[in-house]
Write a protein that binds this DNA or RNA. Structure first.
Lengths: 215, 215
DNA sequence: GTTTCTATTTATAACTC
DNA sequence: TGAGTTATAAATAGAAA
């Protein structure tokens, strides 16, 4: 007699093309991830926050003890009045300066190697300040080096972004669109809990029930 | 010959008491959750951010395309539109289109002054092979250079992120900054799995006010 | 703290209703 | 849509290195 199902099939981890399958898979796997997270929190007493945007940009979240608590802690849990997230990001960054210093040293070594390699390919133009080391391939880097590189990159990017911010505020009249020192000007966060996108996800989340107690 | 292992045993989802086991389990399951998240992102084109605090309050995070991007979008409450630094970049581009020449002139003039001032402070510090130019004051760079730099960051970011994910799961371990004024929460984790919450976090999130300007 | 090696338990892809 | 089924792919507990 014919099998009802071929059972679970191996699946390559590449974007699912078939829309219907993608939807089902997203739903199942999101559930799976949340469940795993819940178990991790319970088993190990860990705190965890997960935010997921579906392909259709719906929001789903899981937090133990709450998303806010964890994210707040992520940014050093030192939120003050103005410019909350920005301030927290700064604090967090400052907290890592010591580590970054060490990392930068290692990155320097790595970059010197890249630089040297680049010079072999283009003797005349790649030495000195003009050498665009960041365009070099990263395929041959190992994980620790990449993490160092990334950490350094994050700091530099923040510095540059901050500077661009300053330039914009100083040299243009667009501060009404973005002013890090004032309250958000748009509908950034609704005040009414019954009137925002999170509630929608809440409704979705409440639709789940399982025996593992993560709802 | 006796079996080396009894194989996987069923495990109740309650807090692990044996310290050594808890540690091992945390490590393995954290990896598992991150991997699942990575697959979800790849398979479904979803955006996802995870932040985990270990029992010892070390931080681990995973994000696709980045933790910052997802959190930023989450707090902006606008899942269709960019905000924060991304919005800044957009505004920036618009500003350039509208008034490129004037802006550049102004910025150039302004930066020339700052550059001069910076050089006075930085005399003789910039030469040499080991000069870490990315530590130099960003104030000395002009707008075009900053933009090039920023674009390069994005490229590097993508390369590195992609590579790291290939190598498995990006696991960023920050050293947590303790706030002496805040009470430790990890001890208060419920042992009852049913105390885990999904929906409450969504409500509580509304208390987190500033959704703009992550950087 | 991590990783390897099994034996099992779980998760889940494809299908059905 | 959402909720089961089934056969198989994956994850992982426990022991040990």
């Amino acid at each position: 007699m014919a099998r009802q199902s071929k059972g679970r099939r191996k699946l390559d981890i590449v974007k699912i093309t078939k829309e219907s399958n993608l939807l089902v898979t997203f739903s199942k796997r999101r559930y799976g991830v949340f469940k795993k997270a819940s178990e991790l929190a319970t088993l190990c007493g860990a705190e965890i926050a997960i935010i997921v945007f579906s392909p259709s940009m719906k929001v789903f979240s899981f937090g133990h003890p709450s998303v806010e608590t964890v994210i707040d802690r992520f940014f050093s849990g030192n939120s003050t009045q103005t410019s909350g997230v920005l301030q927290l990001a700064k604090i967090h960054r400052n907290a890592r300066v010591r580590d970054l210093n060490l990392q930068l040293t290692q990155v320097t070594t790595q970059l010197d190697e890249e630089k040297k390699r680049g010079e072999e390919l283009d003797q005349g133009n790649k030495a000195g300040d003009g050498y665009r080391w960041w365009e070099s391939p990263v395929e041959e880097l190992d994980l620790p080096k990449l993490e160092h590189l990334k950490a350094s990159f994050e700091m530099l990017r923040e510095n540059v972004t901050k500077r661009v911010e300053e330039l914009l505020i100083q040299t243009t009249n667009h501060t009404q669109f973005y002013n890090p020192n004032s309250a958000p000007v748009n509908e950034a966060l609704p005040t009414d809990p019954n009137n925002d996108v999170f509630d929608e996800s809440l409704v979705y989340n409440l639709g789940f029930q399982n025996g593992n107690g993560f709802f």
